[in-house]
Amino acid sequence: MYPPKFDYYRANSIDEAFALMGQLGDAKLLAGGHSLIPALKLRLAAPSALIDIGRIGELKGISRNGSTATIGALTTHATVAAASDLPAALTEAAGWIGDPQVRNRGTVGGNIAHADPASDLPTVLTALGATMNMRGLNGARSVSADDFFIDLFMTALGEDEILTSVDVPVDGAGTAYAKLFNPASRYAIVGVAAKVSVSGGQCTSARVALGGLTPSAVRAPSVEAALVGKALTADNIAAAAAQVGGDLDDVMGDIHASEEYRRAMAPIYVQRAVSKAAERAG
């Protein structure tokens, strides 16, 4: 498949990337290329230039500051999957993305900047209460995951901004990700991430997010409310999971999974994610 013509530039630093973005009109940033290149080849996108940020060292790697892990935007899925001190929901989700080639090339930043509704990381980062850090010509800003994912392929990231890193709280809560795979693409038909804290046998806080069903990842406030204050028994989790339908508007359907099937799967995967997170909360 042949993409339309584009010019290729490589930025060696964030500043160089900004300089290039200033010079070149409708350029696109190129990270791992695993969403952008297919779009070019299918001629769904036709930017006049690509700015390859893939080799900017300062955007790579995972660092830890107290109870916050900072993941550089260019960190690959494979690196995240292999990390030992990130929340389990994140490492397992990263490990289930696509296949080894995709995980070796695809980046965390590219995944969330692209915001495919069937992606895994937006769901997980929403449940984990992550914060997206970005820089523009006018300086840096941070947006919580709850506010970052707006709609289908739409985020709070501005045209002239670069996503630099993601802050993920690492606070000892139990986390888990449960995924119903699209059998062809391996993206999520239903992806549910859960984060729960337990104290004295009771759930003290809960964050549950779903992806794959709706145009962008969403929280499930009814489920969360039903969990908090309860013992995380199988029955209580099932009862809370049953609430999820009310948290889902605009559920999508395709040849693999109709709206009806997706809706039916939502509580099942909520239950699976929450149960596993509860186990991990100890």
Binding site: N182, P183, A184, S185, D254, H256
Partner: peptide, 9 residues
């Protein structure tokens, strides 16, 4: 509808 490996499993 199943015209690529995204949809043809």
């Amino acid at each position: 509808l199943s015209g690529s490996f995204m949809d043809y499993a």
